[in-house]
């Protein structure tokens, strides 16, 4: 890798490493047997929570960039989005493998019958096309407008993710309510801005090569 490329991608690599730390802590804990009495539950909760946190972080980029005067944040939007997808994939894999042990029939029933699983699956499926089209090549192929329209699926992914969490808890709704409040705030920031602002900058400034 050339020095120029390295310099250009270093910030993203640092952000990725930072947000991969929770995964390494989980792996370390799993093999050290230090994740508590129910390690599978712990892994499920942690990967799910990090998916939501990273989705919200991704959604925070645009409002922060505009309102807080941090235009450079855009460089991290794709990284954060891909990390969210990665944790979502791990979360799903935990369910498929460690929780259901590839019992496809049981999982099919779950997805149809259990609304919190339906919502979770919806959130994940909404992220798949976003991860697949996250490259500059796809922005060109879909055209700025088309790409942007497709990537509005992120709102569905985040909302379904919060609902998934909300429908899962038994009675103490503090945590999902907190995620829901942050999501509502981020959406509100968008609505307010949209009225006043000129059309957005072309999306091709996103991503970083």
């Amino acid at each position: 890798m050339g020095m120029a490329v390295l310099r250009k991608t270093l910030p993203q690599m640092l952000v990725s490493s930072a947000f991969l730390a929770p995964l390494f802590l989980l792996l370390y804990g799993f093999f050290r047997d230090s994740l508590g009495p129910n390690p599978v539950e712990k892994i499920t909760h942690e990967t799910g929570q990090w998916t939501l946190r990273l989705l919200l972080a991704t959604l925070a980029v645009t409002p922060l960039r505009r309102c807080a005067g941090m235009p450079w944040l855009i460089r991290f939007r794709r990284t954060l989005g891909l990390l969210a997808f990665f944790y979502g994939l791990l979360h799903l894999l935990t369910y498929v493998w460690l929780d259901q042990f590839f019992d496809w029939k049981a999982m099919g029933r779950d997805i149809l019958k259990r609304r919190f699983i339906t919502a979770g699956m919806m959130s994940f499926l909404a992220m798949v096309p976003l991860a697949l089209t996250s490259t500059r090549g796809w922005i060109v192929r879909l055209g700025g407008k088309g790409w942007q329209r497709l990537h509005r699926l992120v709102y569905l992914a985040a909302a379904a993710g919060v609902v998934h969490f909300w429908w899962l808890v038994k009675s103490d709704i503090r945590e999902p309510a907190l995620y829901g409040a942050v999501l509502a705030l981020l959406m509100l920031a968008r609505l307010k801005k949209k009225g006043r602002q000129a059309p957005r900058a072309p999306v091709s400034t996103s991503g970083s090569g």
Partner: peptide, 19 residues
């Protein structure tokens, strides 16, 4: 008889990986 939000067909014995 399932709990409306999850199946009760299996359980994870604490200390065991699979249900």
């Amino acid at each position: 008889v399932d709990h409306p939000r999850w199946s009760q067909a299996k359980e994870r014995r604490i200390g065991e990986l699979f249900k």
